[in-house]
Simulated assay, not measured.
Amino acid sequence: YTQGRYMTGDGDGISQMLPFKKLLYDEYVKGNFFYSYQFGLGGGTYTQLGYYFTTSMVFMVTVAVVWLLNALHLLQSTDIHFWANAVIWLSVIKLTVILFIAYRVLLSIVQHRLGALTGAGIYGLSI
Results as ranks from 00 to 15, higher is better:
residue 77 S to D: 14
residue 97 V to I: 14
residue 68 L to A: 05
residue 114 L to T: 00
residue 58 V to G: 03
residue 82 F to W: 12
residue 44 G to T: 05
residue 86 A to N: 11
residue 1 Y to I: 15
residue 13 G to V: 08
residue 68 L to M: 05
residue 109 I to A: 00
residue 46 Y to M: 13
residue 79 D to M: 04
residue 123 Y to E: 00
residue 84 A to V: 14
residue 124 G to K: 01
residue 52 Y to M: 06
residue 7 M to L: 06
residue 76 Q to K: 15
residue 123 Y to C: 00
residue 1 Y to T: 09
residue 105 V to F: 00
residue 108 S to W: 07
residue 13 G to I: 02
residue 38 Q to F: 10
residue 56 S to I: 09
residue 99 L to I: 00
residue 60 M to P: 00
residue 119 G to C: 00
residue 37 Y to M: 13
residue 94 K to M: 07
residue 42 G to R: 06
residue 79 D to C: 03
residue 105 V to W: 01
residue 55 T to E: 11
residue 25 Y to K: 06
residue 77 S to Q: 15
residue 82 F to A: 13
residue 5 R to N: 14
residue 51 Y to F: 09
residue 38 Q to P: 01
residue 38 Q to D: 11
residue 43 G to C: 08
residue 91 S to L: 13
residue 92 V to P: 03
residue 89 W to D: 11
residue 3 Q to L: 15
residue 39 F to A: 01
residue 20 F to P: 02
residue 6 Y to N: 14
residue 93 I to R: 08
residue 43 G to F: 12
residue 5 R to T: 15
residue 72 L to I: 05
residue 106 L to V: 07
residue 118 T to V: 02
residue 4 G to F: 10
residue 21 K to C: 06
residue 52 Y to N: 04
residue 127 I to L: 10
residue 53 F to K: 13
residue 107 L to F: 04
residue 39 F to V: 08
residue 4 G to I: 15
residue 62 T to Y: 07
residue 108 S to N: 12
residue 120 A to C: 01
residue 52 Y to T: 03
residue 93 I to S: 04
residue 13 G to N: 08
residue 7 M to S: 10
residue 48 Q to W: 15
residue 32 N to T: 01
residue 96 T to R: 06
residue 60 M to D: 03
residue 7 M to R: 09
residue 36 S to L: 05
residue 57 M to Q: 06
residue 100 F to M: 07
residue 13 G to H: 13
residue 100 F to S: 04
